[in-house]
């Protein structure tokens, strides 16, 4: 018990030391320059419904509401996977009007909720909810043998039963013709009578 406390104490000390150092660069990023980023999503025309391809548009402006050209914008999808809450699903570069456009096909099975993030400045947009779940791209193949594999099991069992029936039939038919010695039959006969009397 003391040993465990000692080691956890060590762990805590080390944690505090490195966490303090580690937070420093993260906190430095929190002060982002002013600006705004908005994102909207539209299902692409004739895309096969809402689970098909969408068009994502992110508009990036600076503090003075001037569009920013040539900035890389990443689109992040909200996920829930082993402590990961966001993953980059697309990225695009803003044009002269400050708009970054990309096509996006939902493949994650979670509710599609996207944010845009300007890579350089770090500002993020409000999330846009597509209102659909994605369709995972992997498809399981069908069993091509179908009926054959379905019949194989019962067929084998049936065959085994037929063989057993033949073996039993051969043995029993011999035993039937070769009568049991009366000595063995008689006790069984008596036992049967006794059971009958009991039941009365």
């Amino acid at each position: 018990m003391a040993r465990r406390t000692r080691v956890i104490g060590r762990a805590a000390a080390t944690t505090l030391l490195v966490a303090g150092l580690g937070l420093f660069p993260a906190s430095a990023l929190a002060d982002s320059p002013p600006g705004s980023l908005t994102v909207q999503a539209e299902p692409a025309p004739a895309s096969g419904g809402q689970a098909g391809t969408w068009t994502l548009e992110a508009r990036l402006t600076d503090a003075g509401n001037h569009p920013l050209n040539g900035q890389t914008v990443e689109f992040l999808l909200g996920v829930d996977f082993l402590g990961i809450h966001q993953v980059v699903v697309a990225s695009a570069v803003t044009d002269a009007s400050g708009t970054a456009t990309t096509a996006y096909r939902p493949t994650s099975s979670s509710e599609q909720s996207l944010v845009a993030r300007a890579v350089d400045s770090g500002i993020t947009s409000l999330p846009v909810d597509l209102g659909v779940r994605g369709v995972p791209t992997v498809v399981a193949p069908t069993n091509q043998l179908g009926l054959v594999s379905a019949l194989a099991g019962p067929g084998a069992i049936g065959l085994a039963l037929v063989v057993w029936a033949l073996l039993a039939g051969a043995l029993l038919s011999v035993l039937r013709v070769i009568a049991w010695p009366r000595r063995l039959v008689w006790p069984a006969h008596r036992a049967g009578q006794a059971v009958g009397e009991l039941l009365e």
Binding site: A170, L171, S173, V174, V177, A179, W180
Partner: peptide, 19 residues
């Protein structure tokens, strides 16, 4: 068992062994 060697028994045994 009750083997007597009769024709009926022998026939039945032969067919069983053959099967």
């Amino acid at each position: 068992l009750g083997w007597t060697g009769s024709t009926a028994q022998r026939r039945r045994l032969e067919s069983a062994i053959g099967l």
